Simulated scan of single mutants.
Amino acid sequence: MTTNRLVRLRSRPVGMVRRDDFEIVDEPARDAGEGEFRVRIEYVSLDPAMRGWIAAGKSYVPPVEIGAVMRGFAAGHVDQSNHPDYKVGDAVAGLLGVQHYAVSKGERCFKVDPTKAPLERWIGGLGMPGQTAYFGLLEVGKPKPGETVVVSAASGAVGSIVGQIAKIVGCRAVGIAGGPEKCRYVVEELGFDACADYKGGNLAEELKAACPDGVDVYYENVGGEILDTVLPMMNLFGRIPVCGLISAYNATEPQPGPKNLRSILVNRLTMRGLIVFDFQDRMAEANEKLGQWHAEGRLRMREDVREGGIEAFPDVLNLLYTGGNFGKLVLKL
């Protein structure tokens, strides 16, 4: 009998997640039934959205139920199959949960080619984060050649791809990241035109210097004070795709809205929230373009792979909210 080690949600966290909010258990792994296949998971994606998935408030998807397997994107290989499109040995990625074995009928799951990129990259820049960057920038931000695109959390899984796509389509790309090392990485390795350090104490001055012609598109991943800093710099009819608001994810009290809300009126800005699932019927398009740019060397990607197995999940998850990761955060099982 094969044992499945998995993470179940025990309680809804208040503030930062605690180990006690989760239960790590061993259970018999379910065999693949008719029309199903089973995946032996090797990598689990750690994503900021996970904090929202385990909260009780209204969101774009129902919250993970108490006692349920923790929701998460993962990648691995098929070890059993009764599905015509998946055979034993196929590498796959998808919404498989935080566990060693997952059974699927193929929903929100796709085959990947580990000869073209490491398996963990298919849950990073070539997976959901890359798709989020692609649709968020191109469909919501609608950048035009010559415009200035600013992205917060620029060294992270989504932000790093946003800036590189901005360069591909002919824009000036300016990042916001925390600390000199991350800012150097964004400029020297990812090819952004500039990167402002929000930990340096002079974010507004650095952004003004990096964006002499103002900001046309601001790709929002953080919110809070950073949003307030960028709003007055937006150009007329600027666009703000709102992908995430990580600064407030672990807040224990209601957070104040933007202080510079008047900028939205004065500059006739468009702010639109985006969820990658809204573009589910166009995923093949994103996958094709991301794969092409990656193969051409136009998209650089970095994974922060953490060891420790599934037992380390609660501690590794918190790295997202303290800035402790550098690149796409992945847990190796």
Rank of each mutant, 00 (worst) to 15 (best):
N267A: 12
E311K: 11
A154M: 06
D21Y: 10
E206R: 07
L320N: 02
L290Q: 00
A68N: 13
P84E: 15
V230T: 00
V242N: 10
I66V: 14
G191H: 08
S263K: 04
Q292E: 12
F279I: 10
P145Q: 14
A55N: 13
V151I: 05
L9M: 09
G33E: 09
A194W: 09
V305A: 12
R268G: 07
S155R: 00
A248M: 14
T270G: 09
G57D: 14
V17R: 00
L269T: 10
K182P: 00
L203E: 10
N325D: 03
V17W: 06
E36I: 04
L329P: 02
E139F: 05
L290D: 00
G141Y: 00
P62M: 09
E27T: 15
P180G: 04
E36P: 01
V149T: 08
A248I: 09
T322K: 10
V276T: 07
K199H: 08
L138M: 12
E288D: 14
V242D: 02
V78D: 11
W293D: 01
T2G: 04
P256Y: 14
V64Q: 04
G297Q: 12
E303S: 07
M271C: 12
A56G: 15
A295H: 13
L138S: 11
V215N: 04
I123F: 06
P212E: 08
V112A: 06
P314V: 05
G156W: 01
E311R: 08
A91C: 14
Y198E: 02
K167D: 06
R272M: 11
N267D: 13
A248V: 07
R19G: 07
K144I: 07
I168W: 02
V217Y: 00
L290H: 03
Y86G: 03
G191E: 09
K289R: 15
M234R: 01
F277Q: 14
I161H: 01
R172M: 06
I176H: 01
D228H: 13
E303K: 05
F135R: 04
D281T: 11
Y219N: 02
N250Y: 06
R71N: 10
Y101F: 15
A117I: 09
L231A: 03
R10D: 07
